[in-house]
Structures are given as C-alpha cells and as structure tokens.
Amino acid sequence: MSTSVHTLASGLQAGNVIPFLGPRMLALCDGPDVPATPGALAQIMTAKVSVPHKIRNRLTQAAQFIENFKHRKSVVSLMNDAFAATPAPSALHRALAASGAGLFVDSWYDDTFAAALAEARPGGNWAQVQGLSQSEHFGQWFGAYDAHGLPLAEVPAAGTLLYKPIGSHAPGANYLVSDSDYVEVLTEIDIQTPIPPAVQAWRSGRSFLFLGCRFDDQLTRSFARQIMKRSSGTHWAVLPDEPTRMEARFLDEQQITRIAMPLAMFADELVSALQPALAA
C-alpha cells in the first residue's frame, strides 16, 4: 500500500483533508441504479419529454427546454423520479462517513452519501446544505437541513457538514440543473455569494481529495475552482483516465496531484488505511 494513501488517511482522520465526491463514486455501489453521468441523466429525462434531437444528450440544455415549454415542476418531477432510489453506500462511502473529516462536498444529486452519514453517525450530529435554484428560491442561494431532513434557519457553524452545491434529491428536491440555474449561480460565484460561509470557513488551509470526479467541462471546473478558493495549495484527484488538455491545465492551475489508478483499487487501499482508526 502506497505511502500517499496512508498520508491521505491520516489527513482525513485529522480533518485536514476534505473529500470532494463526484457522480462516478456510484460505480462503487450496489443497486438500485441511478444515473451516474450528466449524459445518462439527460437520456432519462428526454425519454419522457420530447426535446430537440440536438440537445437530447445535453443535460442543462434539455432541462432548460423542458422548463421553458413545460414547467419548472416538470423538471423537478423528472429529477425526483431519476433519483428516487438510493444506491447502497459502498465501503468507501462508509469509511469516509465514519472518518474525522468535518466537511464533505458531494457534487451529484443522489442521496448515497447522506445515507452513509446517517449510518455512521446515528446520533444525528451532522447537517446538510444544498444549493438552491433561483427560479424557486429567488435571493436565497442555499438551504440547510438537519440529519433528519428538517429545515434549519441557518447553516450550522460547527459540526459535520455535507455540502451539495448543485442540490440533491432529499430532503428538499433542490436541483441546479438547467442553463438558467447555472447562469444565476455562476454570475455570483466569483464573489462567493452562493457558497455558505460555513463551507468557506471549513476549507481554509485544508486540502481536497477528489473522488469520482472529472474536470472535462467548464461547469465542473468552475464549481471546483470556487469551492477550493482560499484552501491549501495541496490537493489530489483520483483520475484513472488520461486527462484531457483542459483537465490537465486545471490540475496544474489548482495544484492538484493526479492519482492515476482505478477508483475501485484506490477505494480498497484507502478503506484499508482508514480501518485501524475506525476500529479504535
């Protein structure tokens, strides 16, 4: 087992490393299946609502078309259907949830990691904060919920926090998914308005570990860049596939070290490295 994995495990236990989870984490889970890429989600949505052929595989554009010509409620209903099931958390989900990390960033809509936190921390000493669509919550950029799904008046300044920047299925069916959703957020994200102050405080001086993420489109790069702002200068990303030119530039710009190994293999090593501390 590599020294770097042990170093990451120690950083996680000490709360110095923030896990940043992407949709490809779902590949580690057993069923039921939910869409694990923007393209797969777009296909599910457009199988139920007709959209122009040229945007059928483009998630944000397809969602915008449905919002414009049906209703925002139609988009939310389709998203709720797509993510109604919760895949069983993998061993890596469970190990991370039980680790010493104080902030988790989950950049997909499924409820898998929230289920892992509920299992690892039955006392309910964690909260969730989700990005909100301006079309439904004008002027409010994020909403907070306790471990039981009840709304909170504000994001807790202390305790474990699950941050879902593009929303989530549960508990509030909040989704950033259409072009207009993202335009609103990206207009403000440079000055950090959509990012909760508690998240900004947590990331200060800490490192990020990207798991199940790709940076091959502008949206994912923009969100990751702004969420990482004012953190440390040392980060890692498990990327088994050769990065695209723009990904490579992003990794270099953000001082992210690529770990070139399959996610499943890395997961086995990290879970094993975390196990002694979790058993203590």
Score class of each variant (00 low, 15 high):
156 P>G: 13
96 L>T: 04
137 H>R: 12
61 Q>C: 01
85 A>S: 13
88 A>E: 14
56 R>G: 01
92 L>Y: 09
126 W>C: 09
169 H>R: 14
125 N>L: 12
83 F>D: 00
133 S>T: 13
117 L>R: 10
136 E>A: 08
71 H>M: 06
125 N>M: 09
152 L>Y: 14
150 L>D: 12
89 P>G: 11
119 E>R: 08
160 T>I: 14
100 G>N: 10
154 E>F: 08
125 N>C: 08
132 L>A: 15
81 D>W: 10
111 D>C: 10
54 K>P: 01
167 G>C: 01
136 E>M: 10
112 T>N: 06
93 H>E: 06
43 Q>V: 06
139 G>V: 06
148 H>E: 12
153 A>Y: 02
87 P>A: 07
91 A>S: 15
149 G>Y: 09
153 A>C: 05
76 V>C: 00
140 Q>E: 13
127 A>D: 06
106 D>R: 03
67 E>N: 14
168 S>Q: 11
93 H>W: 03
75 V>L: 05
163 Y>M: 04
137 H>Y: 14
69 F>N: 15
167 G>T: 01
82 A>V: 02
125 N>E: 15
126 W>V: 05
105 V>P: 00
50 S>V: 13
86 T>D: 07
144 A>M: 12
165 P>A: 10
91 A>W: 06
136 E>Q: 14
107 S>Y: 04
157 A>T: 15
161 L>A: 12
60 T>V: 08
119 E>M: 02
100 G>L: 03
159 G>V: 07
80 N>V: 06
115 A>G: 01
150 L>E: 13
80 N>W: 11
52 P>T: 09
81 D>S: 15
67 E>F: 08
44 I>N: 03
109 Y>M: 12
106 D>P: 00
144 A>D: 14
113 F>P: 01
54 K>I: 05
158 A>Y: 02
87 P>D: 12
105 V>L: 12
60 T>Q: 15
115 A>R: 15
84 A>F: 06
67 E>R: 15
79 M>I: 03
82 A>M: 11
130 Q>C: 15
155 V>L: 08
133 S>A: 15
112 T>G: 04
113 F>Q: 04
47 A>H: 11
157 A>E: 14
86 T>R: 08
67 E>L: 08
96 L>I: 09
133 S>K: 02
105 V>S: 05
98 A>V: 05
89 P>I: 06
151 P>Q: 09
86 T>I: 14
122 P>W: 07
52 P>N: 10
97 A>E: 08
142 F>E: 00
166 I>V: 13
79 M>W: 01
55 I>G: 09
87 P>Y: 06
83 F>V: 03
45 M>W: 09
55 I>K: 09
142 F>K: 00
99 S>T: 03
48 K>N: 13
145 Y>W: 15
110 D>Q: 09
109 Y>F: 15
60 T>C: 12
100 G>T: 02
99 S>A: 13
156 P>M: 08
142 F>R: 01
125 N>I: 02
162 L>C: 09
108 W>E: 10
